Simulated scan of single mutants.
Amino acid sequence: MSQDHHMESALAGAVWRASSYSGGQGNCVEVADNIPTLAGAAWRISTYSGGQGECVEVADNIPSVIPVRDSKLPTGPVITFTPHAWRTFIAHLG
């Protein structure tokens, strides 16, 4: 099964809306406010966070998607990566 299919499955049931940051000119960014898959996310502080209160949290217990959020805004927005994209991103940090 492809990474894209896994991501689509992980986002099934999400409620999408146009971002408040979109300009309304047809080039909108959509965000999901409620992603059922993330209900079971086990969040942890990323090992790449500096420990000075500017932390990124990651949940790596969901096989089909890697969600990332700001630790200061636990109910705020979440960006999601496919596992392959996340590994590629992490590989380039070191």
Results as ranks from 00 to 15, higher is better:
23 G>C: 05
65 V>W: 01
45 I>D: 02
2 S>G: 08
41 A>E: 06
79 I>L: 10
26 G>N: 03
60 D>K: 08
62 I>V: 10
54 E>I: 11
42 A>Y: 04
68 V>R: 10
41 A>R: 07
9 S>E: 13
66 I>R: 07
77 P>K: 08
71 S>D: 10
1 M>P: 13
13 G>F: 06
4 D>M: 13
17 R>K: 10
16 W>R: 00
8 E>P: 00
62 I>M: 03
46 S>W: 02
69 R>P: 02
80 T>F: 02
94 G>R: 14
25 Q>F: 15
11 L>W: 04
71 S>W: 06
90 I>A: 14
69 R>C: 04
75 T>Q: 14
71 S>A: 15
46 S>G: 09
86 W>I: 02
7 M>E: 09
77 P>V: 08
72 K>A: 10
69 R>A: 04
63 P>F: 01
45 I>N: 02
38 L>V: 06
9 S>Q: 14
14 A>K: 07
51 G>C: 00
9 S>H: 13
33 D>I: 09
92 H>D: 15
3 Q>W: 08
36 P>S: 06
43 W>F: 07
39 A>Q: 13
39 A>D: 11
64 S>D: 15
64 S>Q: 15
62 I>F: 06
78 V>M: 03
73 L>R: 12
56 V>A: 09
12 A>L: 13
91 A>C: 05
27 N>K: 00
82 T>W: 04
41 A>L: 05
87 R>V: 08
17 R>W: 05
10 A>P: 04
64 S>A: 15
88 T>K: 13
6 H>M: 10
60 D>A: 14
78 V>W: 03
4 D>V: 14
66 I>T: 00
51 G>M: 00
35 I>M: 04
70 D>Q: 01
81 F>N: 08
56 V>P: 03
74 P>Q: 08
14 A>L: 08
56 V>M: 10
37 T>K: 12
